[in-house]
Simulated assay, not measured.
Amino acid sequence: MAKETKDFSAISGLPDELGIDDDLSKVGQVLSIRRDTRRYGKPMTIVSGFEMDRAEMKALASELKRRLACGGTVLDDEIELQGNHVERARDILDELGYQVA
Rank of each mutant, 00 (worst) to 15 (best):
A2L: 14
E4V: 12
T5R: 12
D7T: 08
D7M: 08
D7E: 07
S9P: 01
S12F: 10
D16A: 13
G19H: 04
I20T: 08
D22V: 08
D22F: 04
D23Q: 11
L24Y: 13
L24P: 02
L24M: 15
L24W: 13
V27L: 14
V27W: 12
Q29M: 14
L31T: 02
L31K: 00
S32M: 12
I33V: 15
R34N: 12
R35F: 03
R35Y: 06
R35E: 15
D36S: 10
R39L: 15
R39M: 14
Y40N: 15
Y40E: 14
G41C: 07
K42V: 09
P43Y: 03
T45P: 03
I46S: 00
G49I: 08
G49V: 06
E51G: 04
E51L: 03
M52L: 06
R54E: 10
A55G: 03
A55D: 09
E56V: 05
L60T: 06
L60Y: 01
A61V: 05
A61H: 01
S62C: 08
L64W: 00
K65D: 02
R66A: 13
R66N: 11
R67V: 04
L68D: 04
L68N: 04
A69T: 08
A69M: 11
T73D: 12
V74F: 05
L75D: 05
L75E: 11
L75P: 00
I79S: 00
I79D: 01
E80Q: 15
L81H: 02
G83H: 02
N84D: 15
H85E: 03
V86C: 05
V86H: 03
E87K: 13
R88N: 09
R90G: 02
D91W: 05
D91K: 13
D94H: 13
D94G: 08
D94K: 11
E95W: 07
L96C: 09
G97R: 04
Y98A: 10
V100E: 01
A101H: 07
